[in-house]
Design a protein around this nucleic acid. Structure first.
Lengths: 349, 349
DNA sequence: GCTTGGCGCTCCGGTTAGGCGAGTGCTAGT
DNA sequence: ACTAGCACTCGCCTAACCGGAGCGCCAAGC
């Protein structure tokens, strides 16, 4: 798609931009007179009307009913946003402060980092902020512990090099004493230190083979236990969401019923994740306006998302969800900056 | 307070009960004709009107405006609910199934147990379910681990006998190697095993004294580290909330703004906890109707709460939050049963 | 003396009609 | 190529109206 926006006559561009601007923070149709006065083009309302008629033919604006002001369409927002993305976005945010906050949060565990970041996003934009919690699949094995809770119940604690802790209660086939469990843990810690969790499963299988030949006690059992650790990591698919409340009472988001479904989506998180995941592939900021999201639930929403990661490897996604009518320029730079800062906070720890 | 409810003339009792019943699931004022027909007392509307006039004098019902039907007051709900509490509540819920579910959840960690329970409460009542996560303060020390993440950053993992895991990243004054940290951990595990977290602090202080005299290396440092574990436990004040969405669109909860504050309270959780905490003292089910909650945010809500615990010791609180107009009998028995089951699931593990 | 039917009155909610303001499209004029 | 003017269309607000539901009171009946 060539930049369709810049193909518009300059005057139309200006007017449309102003229209979008005003509509974004008033939410009501804008009439020709108002538009004429607000653009500093010194045009009469009549002329503006003519331009509007053209834009209407192009599908860029529409009038909710005969003789009311105009409203930009989703398509117009799309073009406008595209033009923003190609233009160099300035960062109006106090990056310094943000960086410090995120850095501190990243020092603690990933969960907390995601919480902080989503709070940041929501309070800066006044919409809802969403941050996926980096899966530990890419982290490195640091230490594993088994604690016997009662006969037949063992607590597994897995620590990764990013400070993440994953724990789960498992029910092994045979009851083991704490001594045995400690031996298992020592064995595993020795072998697995520094390995990536991702590749752990294969390593385990390989180890299992080689260990079986030695009659070294039932250490093979240790490996079975460790596999449950890998499962625990894979199961986890956390998201931090903050500021949903901000969306409440934004009237375009429609009737109570619609709103209810939206909040449900925030609570369930499943749909949320699949939406955000679409940003993973994209370089830079990715935006869905209205039905572009594909999901019925979000078809009155605008979504601005970006991925973050370490060393060109994506580990998570973050974004802002608000109404379609949203100050995209501001939100885009906020999301953009946040994703960069988060990445850098992660990489230099 | 003697049971004011039973002091009412029998006929008034019946009518008021029917009124509350109908109002609870219609939400609209009920007129004398309807009331006359619904109660099987075979009374004429006029008679009902007379009774209503009496009840109005007593402050038990009121008419929103001249010549509309009657609506029960908070006070009437209060009396009604009191009469329910003294009466033996039957348990209409399938306790067997619930017990199994909760038992399974309790086998995993406390967090998960609270999640399950709050989901249960909300789906059974169709309101919001809230469950505080048992503070581990009363749990017993099982094991502590220190993992060196990077120079100056140490991950502390504390395991309690209930399968709870508490972790936190700490920044000790001096950098320690993993070997040293392991020694610290061993030292602590030996001394503290089986102690209650609650009393840990004092034990630590005492240990600190006695250890200082021995020049046993810098084991006193270990104690300082362990103190941060106690802090971590104390800091935590978790709550599991489920089904807030159910409250959305209940119109008496008022305008968007009110609703917003309500949802904020759910997100912040602080106010929620302080509300629920008031149930801790009470034996059995405790109920707040409207302004009784003390909090402005909940003054259009009804809250049914109960505490749960092991061996007469309260470890947490749970409850249901809905509109004032709520089928208290149903909700009460659900909350009651859930709290009992949760207690028993905890005690026999 | 409690209960009941009847009557007059009040108030809410929905509907209708009219007026106002904002805005458009079109056309003619600069 | 713009602009000014005009007729027309809507949406929205207010006032007025009407029917229905319901109450209080009263007088009559069991």
């Amino acid at each position: 798609m060539t930049d369709a926006w810049s193909l518009l006559p300059e005057r139309a561009q200006t007017l449309l931009r102003v229209l979008i601007d005003r509509y974004t923070d008033e939410g009501a149709p804008i009439g020709s007179r108002a538009l004429a006065r607000m653009s500093d083009l010194n045009l009469s309302p009549a002329t503006v009307r003519n331009v509007m008629a053209d834009l209407e033919d192009l599908g860029l604006v529409r009038a909710p009913h005969t003789s009311s002001g105009r409203v930009p369409t989703e398509f117009a927002y799309r073009l406008f946003v595209d033009s923003l993305l190609t233009a160099p976005g300035k960062a109006p945010v106090d990056a310094r402060r943000l960086e410090r906050i995120l850095r501190e949060a990243a020092e603690d565990d990933p969960q907390q980092m995601a919480d902080t970041a989503s709070n940041l996003l929501s309070s800066l934009t006044q919409f809802a902020g969403v941050v996926t919690i980096p899966s530990r699949a890419r982290a490195l094995f640091r230490q594993i512990d088994f604690v016997s809770l009662s006969p037949g119940r063992v607590l597994m604690v897995l620590v990764t090099n990013d400070g993440g802790v994953q724990n789960r209660i498992i029910h092994p086939n045979k009851p083991y004493g704490q001594d045995e469990l400690t031996r298992f843990a020592n064995f595993l810690n020795e072998r697995l230190n520094g390995q990536s969790i991702q590749g752990l499963r294969e390593t385990l299988v390989a180890e299992l083979k080689s260990t079986r030949e030695q009659i070294e006690g039932n250490l093979s059992e240790a490996i079975t236990l460790a596999e449950s650790a890998v499962e625990a990591v894979e199961d986890e698919a956390g998201v931090a969401v903050a500021g949903q409340v901000n969306l409440m009472g934004i009237d375009e988001l429609g009737d109570v019923d619609r709103m209810r479904r939206l909040f449900n989506a925030f609570a369930e998180k499943r749909e949320l994740v699949s939406l955000l995941d679409q940003c993973e592939r994209a370089q830079g900021v990715k935006i869905f306006i209205g039905r572009e999201s594909g999901s019925r639930t979000f078809d009155e929403c605008g979504v601005v998302g970006a991925s973050y990661g370490v060393d060109d490897e994506v580990v998570g996604v973050l974004g802002v969800i608000g109404p379609k009518r949203m100050p995209y320029d501001r939100v885009i730079s906020i999301v953009d900056v946040t994703s960069r800062l988060l990445s850098s906070a992660l990489s230099r720890q």
